[in-house]
Nucleic acid binder design. Structure first.
Lengths: 147, 147
DNA sequence: AAACAAACTTAGCTAAAACTAATATATTTT
DNA sequence: AAAATATATTAGTTTTAGCTAAGTTTGTTT
């Protein structure tokens, strides 16, 4: 087995993750749904989808529906998991909801698996030690008057 | 008034930050020093430097030395501060030294000022509550056998 | 001061990822 | 079923940031 699939660009990851999210219920999604979810024009989505199809991550036929291949589904769910770890973390340290998503999207494609693991461990730690968070928020409150 | 300086690309920030680091002692740096520090070929550095000069962030003359303008110095030091915040944070959550720098470089250009502020606050909190860190490392130790 | 080496610049190419405009296909309405 | 609408694709352009190759300028040696 070779690595093969691991060299997705940040954008490709964005697309794949979104395809995963959009098709998790229905089993499929479409170009216009994808493109509007990513705030991108349809031609951009088409092009990327064709590349993902070449990599056998999704099944795609012209004018048709987008369906994840087994590989794509696996990778997609990993990407989503990663996304959620970052997002939880970003929220916990105090970035407000309005910006949290955006910040998450910016970070998620850049950091390594190791870093994600660290963040995940940290989140679990916080979960089991909620008093730490209380302390932190108290501290934040005292040290953040007007922004 | 036009857009002014605030819309630097991630790369431009990389270059500016590095110029700042390299010239903080001597007051100047050079293309080849910059390009090798950034692992980039000299022509790439030249091109970017010309753009930064157009934005009045550095003083630059062909075949000459690179010197930060007042604006550039200010922005550069902010970028470096940001870098250090991220780096400290990354190390604190447990990313090992070997990867910390790389991870920092990947994150630093993506996140917003607000997020940086949150991270900074968190770092200060940790500083004033070292016991939290001790607890966390204990937890980490228990939940991280072999990677 | 001539020759050589090092540093730098220019020109031109590549790749990713976005865009618009034009065209093609599919679906829905009448 | 024809017309109208919605959805997709293709082709071609743009921007950013890298690269190589070739040519300039500067500096260092002899």
């Amino acid at each position: 087995m070779k690595k093969e699939n691991k060299s997705l660009t940040a954008s490709m990851e964005d697309y794949l993750e979104m395809i995963y999210r959009l098709s998790v219920d229905t089993g499929f999604t479409r170009i216009h749904e994808l493109s509007s979810a990513l705030n991108v024009r349809p031609p951009s989505a088409t092009k990327m989808v064709q590349r993902l199809a070449e990599l056998k991550l999704i099944k795609y036929e012209k004018y048709g529906v987008l369906i994840l291949e087994e590989n794509g589904k696996l990778l997609g769910s990993e990407l989503l998991k990663r996304h959620n770890i970052i997002e939880n973390f970003i929220k916990i340290i105090g970035v407000d909801e309005t910006n949290a998503l955006e910040e998450t999207e910016k970070i998620e494609h850049t950091v390594s698996t190791k870093t994600i693991e660290c963040i995940d461990t940290f989140l679990h730690f916080i979960e089991e030690n909620p008093d730490v968070l209380t302390q932190y928020y108290q501290y934040r409150f005292e040290h953040t008057s007007e922004q």
